[in-house]
Design a protein around this nucleic acid. Structure first.
Lengths: 406, 406
DNA sequence: GTCGTTGGTTGCGTCGTAAAACTATCGGCA
DNA sequence: TGCCGATAGTTTTACGACGCAACCAACGAC
């Protein structure tokens, strides 16, 4: 296999961003904060200077601003080796955001800080398929209240991000349709906003947020891959596309519906109005029905049954793997994203489906000979919640200027 | 249909670009030049200031630099209305680039200037299917020599961009594989570089360049859509994805192979190693074979035959439309790109296939109720050549600083 | 206790933009 | 014909942000 270096013959257009002088400072504040956030081991001012190319004097001034603004904390000096001991810099543990997630099997709230640490978590696993929204949202509110208790004294909660398994409006304010919950045209805010007390709440598609979290597992820190397709396999199949560490949201924010890409056009009709959609072969509902099992069967159970010799279960899983492999090969052909991430419940079948999916990718991707192809599992079990919190925390790293406390 | 405003809940990560002070000037030079290039009617310095938000003094200085650097020309003052007459600013007509295109049916060279005008063009329509590369490249060299004659006195040719119907290496230097020409692992440079005399030559995929030209028909000028799938239908089917006015090249530059997305997995075997690929149903070779016509039949002829009552031709076209509609609906579901652009030879069938493709998109795209969907034809008949020239010209607008003559 | 080493700060020069005053050149009008 | 208003463009001055280099701070080693 030949590996090719990254260089794009088609130029990337620079956004026509007018630059005032303050733009310069804001950009460099971002560079410094990103550097502090991205470091595995805490950096000193001098370390940031060495890493970014800015001079120590400039870094010093910018760091002072970030410290004064409450985004960076100075640790106690480390004593090691000759010279003046360095002052370690850490993203503030007082800057937090809340991630929320509701899907058919999980309700969860997470509090993350700017270091990307999970400060608190509260969750439950009810069955919300075809449920009334009120019950699920009340449960979510309980979890939210619990994690809000854990906000450190003097801490700031920048926002809350709610991951939902469906189509969210472009403003991130309403859930338009979550077919697998049976929820439609809904403002999930009222129950939550009272608790949030002015803290902004943003809604987004679960898979998009999960993919964001996979691409950027902590604010300013890059994940193992920046070009991947994320498959969120629950009752249905959601997805997201990440290129160059950016989640592709599309023009209206509807991108990522990989579950409704065609696998067998003309095949199983799908409630979406189409037929033969991937979801009709690789979604939990489709798989359990094919295996002749009750719809509440989890994919983990399905996998165990298949391992135990349940032929129909094994067949259903194999068909799902075929469907995923074919569709994902198409996606890789279209977008040259060499990594496939399996997240959500379908991750529980990773051992069974990864080999077949990998095989199909290698066989069906045109440029397979020129690129590595890998299928990996997302280890986070509530990645939507993580992504919901990162939704707000990442904004801080992207542009710290607007988040400095006066 | 509800239209939704554009706003993305998932944040767009800002590249960690360190900003020096010169960065500021370079960015604003770009803002000014882009403004000059994008204007329908020539702008004055004051007009640029009004349009960009920069002050007149700053604009004046930057424009002076661009004029001194040979990128912008001052026209003769216009006399209209009260006040001091404005000095119209125009992108320099002396700054040019060459676009080159070779595919199975076209060999072309175009000279474009920074205004996006076609200064000269030379082309021919040989049949290069299964040909020896040398003949086609010699022909291309003739066309290149001809358009180079048209470079204005004192003009600068920034580069040449060659569009090829195949996979190009990431550096833009070698053609790895062009299945429909029968060319493989080839450096097309030698014949051309002698003529180019040091002018840089870049290679890229034909559909990617065509899509670039559609998104940015002239340097710095935006096309009618910035979120679209481009289908380049020739002997095979190439493609490109554009989101937010940027061509998605993928990690290794291989993105866009829409022709090898699955339409009927398990169906017609494809030389790519897969089966049921879109290209096996909507490529010219597949369509003419299905219609029982000789492989040299053009799609325009096929369309005329179908119009004249040739049943097999009509069926082949209908199947192609079905295949395109199904696959493109999947792409739209995945990427939320509401526009499909038909380019290349398949554009000659636009009248016959557009209705069916549109119908399938409306039926199979999940969020169809929330977004407009349109299928349009690319009017450029050698869009790869246009894109090849724009490859270089766009870089100037993106960052003029590096192109100022001392 | 002195020296070398590294971290961090301070003062000054340069660059680039903003603001405002000033100059240039038109049409209109008495 | 000469003045005025209006618009285009330039010049002057101020300010903000970075780089550079000298300086101060705090450690280990001897």
């Amino acid at each position: 296999m030949r590996r090719l270096t990254v260089m794009h013959p088609v130029p990337v257009e620079v956004p026509p961003a007018l630059a005032h002088q303050s733009t310069l400072r804001e950009a460099n504040l971002g560079v410094v904060l990103r550097s502090v956030c991205a470091a595995e081991e805490p950096l000193s001012r001098a370390g940031v200077a060495a890493g970014t190319g800015l001079t120590r004097s400039t870094v010093s001034r910018l760091v002072d601003e970030l410290v004064a603004g409450g985004l960076v904390e100075e640790g106690t000096a480390l004593l090691a080796g000759p010279g003046r001991p360095a002052t370690p810099l850490l993203p503030s543990s007082r800057v937090c955001a809340v991630g929320l997630q509701v899907n058919a099997a999980h309700v969860a709230a997470r509090l993350l800080d700017l270091r990307g640490r999970v400060v608190a978590e509260s969750r439950s696993e009810p069955d919300l398929v075809g449920s009334e929204p009120a019950a699920g949202l009340a449960l979510l509110a309980d979890h939210l209240a619990e994690v809000l208790e854990a906000v450190p004294t003097g801490g700031r909660v920048l926002g809350a991000g709610l991951a939902l398994p469906g189509v969210v409006d472009a403003a991130g304010e309403r859930l338009l349709h979550a077919p697998n919950l049976g929820w439609r045209d809904l403002d999930p805010g009222p129950d939550l906003r009272a608790l949030l007390d002015g803290i902004p709440l943003g809604l987004a598609n679960e898979a998009n947020l999960a993919a964001h979290a996979f691409a950027e597992p902590a604010p300013g820190r890059r994940g193992r891959s920046g070009h991947f397709v994320y498959v969120s396999g629950e009752i249905g199949i959601g997805g997201a596309v990440v290129t160059d560490w950016r989640v592709q949201t599309g023009l209206h924010g509807f991108a990522g519906e990989i579950g409704h890409m065609p696998f067998r056009p003309g095949g199983d009709p799908c409630p979406c109005g189409s037929d033969g959609c991937l979801e009709r072969y690789a979604g939990r509902l489709a798989m359990t029905r094919r295996a002749g099992l009750p719809p509440g069967t989890t994919l983990a159970e399905l996998g165990r049954l298949a391992d135990g010799g349940h032929a129909a279960a094994a067949e259903a899983i194999d068909l799902a793997a075929d469907a995923l492999g074919v569709v994902l090969a198409g996606v890789v052909n279209l977008l040259d994203v060499p990594t496939v991430v399996l997240g959500g419940e379908i991750g529980d079948l990773a051992d069974r489906i990864t080999p077949r999916v990998t095989e199909l990718l290698r066989a069906r991707v045109m440029a397979a000979a020129f690129m590595p192809l890998e299928v990996v599992r997302d280890a986070d079990d509530v990645p939507g919640a993580t992504g919901g919190a990162l939704l707000h925390l990442s904004r801080v790293v992207a542009g710290p200027a607007g988040f400095l406390t006066v």
